[in-house]
Design a binder for these strands. Structure first.
Lengths: 216, 216
DNA sequence: TGACACATACCAACCGGTTGGTATTGTTTG
DNA sequence: CAAACAATACCAACCGGTTGGTATGTGTCA
């Protein structure tokens, strides 16, 4: 087995190649139009490749959807792994700073801050179990990166009424809901509002008096 | 102007007519497959009418989407208006009972308890402003039915850190997010979990000690 | 009889996917 | 090293089938 140039499903594609360009195009276009409304031809045009190249790299449009979800997981992992909220020494501080970070990300155009996998899974959860599972893995995998901090904060404050995993997933629930509301209202204001409620929930749960800040 | 047989956009269509059957079919099929993946032919087949009947009642597929959102508003208003949570004498009790009621609704198949307008708005918010606005009106209109109780509960408990409208919208944010997570995980369990967090948020905000119950 | 509520038949455009083929790159071998 | 070979990357044209939408016919009822 030759390991010198592996292009596994979860590793990032070679930058500049047709595959990478298609995944970038999918990330942008699917977030703005949805998966079904995005045609393969449109993807190819945006990536500057032909339809033949598309089906050279992906067995089907569904396979592209799975790859796009995996690509999303990989790129967002990088973003959050290098984000500044990890610098806080206290786990609860890290958690609250994560929420602030998510709120800061809610800026610009809607298709720039919303979630690719949340958008896709709503459309295809019944028609493509492969994409559904890849989206679930992306969301749940990101939530899992919060669990250690939440667990530590729960231990510090003797919070036993729920679990770290449940709280981590709840953060993602609120964010996914915030994306939908932002789409309905055509702007991020309402999303900021709900994330502020989420932060207040954590502050009350962990009996942390809110720092003066961005709560509405 | 002939008022003897008005088919206004917001009133319920004549039961048994082609229009009503199409709107019922749209409610069911769009929730399970999404708006774009639902073809006009499929809608006609499910409703037992022909394509000619479809375009007799709706100028376009987009017009059906708007009508389906309005129809959703009308039918869900009825459901919630006659729901038992209004019976509690205390406004905070009514609010918490509303949340319990929403949790109870999260049962059965996913396409049976998820939200039509939340599903549609995610797909078409960029391609059809008419549908987007109808979906927004549906969600915001339902949230508005909670505002009076929230306002009264806030006054009773001297809660001033946020507004009744913001809290009402936040309940919908959490529910919409819960629907997405349920689709990603292919089951309502995680949605119940997040609604329990929402209830706990209200209990803490209004300093109400939780009744022994279904919180996880 | 005429207005309305549908049904039938049909269309141009577009869909995801396949085809046969070529250009490029890397590996083997003399 | 270079020629021979093999695999990959990519392309333009095309396929059968489906799409939303239209034009026109027909039965019904006031």
């Amino acid at each position: 087995m030759n390991l010198s140039r592996p292009i596994s499903r979860t590793s990032l594609p070679r930058p500049g190649g047709a595959r990478a360009k298609l995944l970038d195009a999918a990330r942008d276009i699917v977030r703005s139009k949805g998966f079904n409304a995005t045609s393969v031809d449109e993807l190819c045009a945006a990536a500057g490749v032909t339809k033949g190249a598309f089906f050279h790299h992906f067995a089907s449009k569904e396979a592209l959807g799975v790859a796009a979800a995996d690509y999303w997981s990989a790129t967002t992992s990088e973003l959050f792994a290098s984000a500044p909220y990890h610098a806080h020494p206290d786990p609860l501080d890290r958690l609250l700073a994560y929420i602030d970070f998510r709120s800061e990300l809610l800026a610009g155009e809607i298709e720039e801050f919303t979630c690719l996998v949340g958008t896709m899974v709503q459309e295809v959860h019944n028609s493509s179990n492969a994409i559904r599972a890849a989206c679930d893995a992306s969301i749940s995998g990101h939530a899992a990166t919060l669990e250690a901090d939440i667990e530590a904060a729960m231990a510090q404050n003797s919070v036993t009424v729920t679990t770290a995993r449940s709280l981590a997933m709840h953060t993602q629930t609120v964010l996914q809901g915030a994306f939908i509301m932002a789409k309905a209202k055509d702007g991020p204001a309402i999303a900021h509002d709900s994330v502020a409620h989420l932060k207040r929930y954590f502050e009350m749960l962990f009996k942390r008096v809110p720092q003066e800040g961005n709560a509405r």
